[in-house]
Design a protein around this nucleic acid. Sequence first.
DNA 1: CTGCATCCGATCCGATACTG
DNA 2: CAGTATCGGATCGGATGCAG
Lengths: 123, 123
Amino acid sequence: MDTAATELRIATAHRDLLDQVLDKWSLSILNELCVRPCRFNELRRAIPNVTQKSLTGTLRRLERNGIVGREVSSTRPVAVTYRIAPLGKTLRRPIDVLLEWAEQHLPSIDAARDAFDAVLDHG
Amino acid sequence: MDTAATELRIATAHRDLLDQVLDKWSLSILNELCVRPCRFNELRRAIPNVTQKSLTGTLRRLERNGIVGREVSSTRPVAVTYRIAPLGKTLRRPIDVLLEWAEQHLPSIDAARDAFDAVLDHG
DNA sequence: CTGCATCCGATCCGATACTG
DNA sequence: CAGTATCGGATCGGATGCAG
């Protein structure tokens, strides 16, 4: 593990890319689509507090980046199915690592926050 | 690796936590502080395009979450040194994985974007 | 040197109404 | 069912001026 030791080299392109893929709703969407393909309203119901607008926007962006695929049936009424794309599957590892980190250190961070805020109170 | 297979379980707490730690400037800041402790203006110079306000704000939040430490000397004028905290060091792995993903798949994603946009033009 | 306060424009986001 | 269009509030981020 010396990749970090040689410095991480964060290019603007990397930041922009991660912004597109790790935003507020993307993690939840990818979470669902990694398990199974989903219809639009399926996703809507599965993800708490997401609005139609945010869901549409996020899905569009993920589609543009080749992370998810979108298939429209010509039935009546139309059915739109979203599924994870090959490129999206490669994101599963990084996301897992991230979530495991969050899971593991959430208590410590909560404690740190409390400590910090307590100092502020005492003044 | 079956953590993903059992579903990632993204709680609101996780999302909030990652929002605090993976925002626009945090990655670059942690990148610098992982290498060495830095003074405020050192960070400012090291990170392109960051404003004083954003830097202060991000550092404050990282400090509150126990990710970085802040030490104020009582010299004249004051010198403030920021350094990575133990909790912050645990973030190095997840960040590395993320950046490696970005590095590796940036070309594919660029291609996907171009393809998507090309369809829009024709369509 | 470090940082806070303020103003201000851009952007995000939710709510609502409407369409094929 | 799966969107698009629009509006208003909240938030973000940059620029500037001031302070310990």
